[in-house]
Design a protein around this nucleic acid. Structure first.
Lengths: 343, 343
DNA sequence: TTTTATAATGCAAACGATTACGTAAACGAT
DNA sequence: ATCGTTTACGTAATCGTTTGCATTATAAAA
């Protein structure tokens, strides 16, 4: 009743030849005469033969699949990274398995263990916000499982990395505000565990210093969580306490949008007497009114680059035995209405 | 040099027992004495043993992984579906492999072929816009590979399906506009190949009919592609040609936002003299100004439901041999500024 | 003591593909 | 006729687990 899958053996029996011959014929080995190769292929097609990857992978110790571990997926930037990963993987005939850690360290460790069981040839990892220990990553190195870190940097671990130039991106964003004439620029960010956050903060400080603006620790606000509402509340409070603040650099677009809403609510004119810049270039940012100036992060490119690096490492282990490149992708400032006062 | 992976054999040799015993001990079979089981497990842990899934899957013909085929991923609604899939799969200890068809029929077929090679136990499929033929899906049935269709419905194919109630959703959205006093409601949609689009169009017509409003084919616009710009252009033209139009039901939030922009540009007041409703509840919709009334689609729930159905079908093939359920998820109208005129 | 039941373990054959090695036939060169 | 090559294929081991069917030891029953 239940139709069995067609195996090499079935083809072999129909043609009265050996399984080995069928295998070789299908993979175009020259040792098999052209005539027979043709016959085998024709019959395979006719019988809808599909190779059993489980078996061939067990034998060859190769999977043609890579695992991806990310903190969350409902997030435009992350979705664009995944998109890049899928594209690049597809180009190289690799399949992609995704696991979401939900920013929980434990889930991250579990995912890595799960992927360490031979179902993938390598791993693409974006560590969670909670990840402070790295023994699970070192375990991977010891088990000889190639992996590449992306987006979030963990400086202590020795592995290929692909990150965005947060420092320069933030620096440019804040310099732009300064050039537009804003004098008292606040910075809203999430907790500082995150490496990117730290870099963006540094960029912010550098820009102030470069232009001889005083840095005021009260103008750096650390939000408990990243959301429009949270940011709106914080900015309202900030503007009541320090009314002289005339611009905000938000660490994400969500935060920047919250800032816009708060400023509008308090009667500020954007960009005339209040400027806002965000980070990431979510689709929202071009649609809100006023449209949001933001730092574009090349998500798709990051996905592609990380995947390319991983596949190279998988297919050429010796070559990458000791020198692990860190690719730093350039951001791009997209100037829109929220910060551009024509002079 | 290169450290070998630890196998059952390695553990067996260290303990001077057979491989079979180790295998059974690790899987908690009662035939093995508790004492020995303990010893084996301890040593396995000590040696960092990770079972080789390739081998065990080959033997058991079971993968604990499912394949997902979607048209694209950078799309909030789709990302939320994926998120639901990943959650549910994770709960049942399944892994998820994703393939993107980019709305190309050929890529969809290729993906299905690829997944038919035993690397997944079942498939979750959201067909592309271009998919008119279904032989590739029938092939799956014949090859005994369980699959579930989600989001996009193809009525001709016999399989479990999970869809959203587009008809009722659209009906409710348009009725809401009517109740708010809008009289000349236009509808903007994409090409009609899509089943959902057709259902939403029907809902639109039904609402008009129910409230004795005349249907005017000129007020149903078919866009070449879905984007804010495309929609803005179309709506501008529409409003110039038919100035009496006072509301728009857009088939997605993008289209609705384009409509808002066009209406504002032409000096219409929203919601006073112009109403707009979208479909999907993207994050954007609550942030634009005026905020957008829209029909919420339960993406995460759809992902979870489809996955649950698939896993049931995988683990209980007989039970689902002939009766394939179609789950229709309820939408929910979220009334916001773009359509709510207080009376 | 012999028989029988029970518990605990080993043996070896799968799963389906790949591949090192072996072999038979055909051919040309000596 | 003999030998060496080449061509074209077959044999069988292998990848790491799982599992049906022994097998052995131990205990209980006769």
């Amino acid at each position: 009743m239940k139709k069995q899958r067609v195996r090499l053996k079935d083809i072999a029996e129909r043609l009265n030849i050996s399984v080995a011959t069928v295998s070789r014929a299908l993979r175009n080995r020259i040792e098999i005469s052209e005539e027979l190769r043709g016959k085998v292929k024709a019959l395979a097609k006719e019988m809808y033969y599909q190779p059993n990857f489980m078996a061939s992978h067990l034998r060859t110790q190769k999977n043609f699949s890579i695992g991806v571990i990310i903190p969350r997926i409902i997030h435009q930037y992350m979705a664009s990274i995944i998109s890049g990963i899928l594209e690049e993987a597809n180009d190289h005939h690799y399949q992609v398995m995704i696991s979401v850690s939900e920013h929980l360290y434990e889930k991250e460790v579990k995912a890595i263990e799960m992927f360490s069981s031979g179902i993938v040839d390598g791993l693409l990892i974006c560590v969670s916000n909670q990840t402070k220990y790295i023994s699970h990553l070192e375990q991977l190195s010891q088990n000889n499982i190639p992996f590449v870190l992306f987006d979030k940097d963990i400086s202590r671990i020795d592995a290929p990395k692909v990150v965005v130039d947060d420092y320069t991106g933030a620096l440019g964003a804040v310099e732009h505000l300064i050039e537009q004439g804003y004098k008292h620029i606040a910075h809203l960010q999430d907790n500082l565990i995150n490496h990117s956050s730290q870099k963006r903060l540094k960029g912010y400080y550098s820009a102030l210093k470069k232009h001889n603006l005083q840095k005021n620790p009260d103008l750096v606000i650390e939000l408990a969580s990243i959301s429009i509402e949270e940011s709106r509340k914080a900015v309202e409070e900030l503007l009541r306490t320090y009314p002289f603040v005339d611009a905000i650099f938000g660490i994400t677009d969500e935060i920047a949008i919250g800032a816009i809403q708060a400023a509008l609510k308090l009667g500020r004119k954007i960009p005339e007497d209040f400027g806002v810049v965000g980070f990431s270039n979510w689709q929202i940012s071009s649609v809100v009114s006023p449209s949001l100036t933001t730092v574009y992060q090349p998500g798709t490119e990051m996905g592609r680059t990380a995947t390319k690096l991983l596949i190279q490492r998988i297919e050429n282990p010796e070559k990458f035995a000791d020198n692990f490149p860190t690719k730093i992708l350039k951001t791009k400032l997209l100037v829109r209405e929220s910060s551009y006062r024509k002079k």
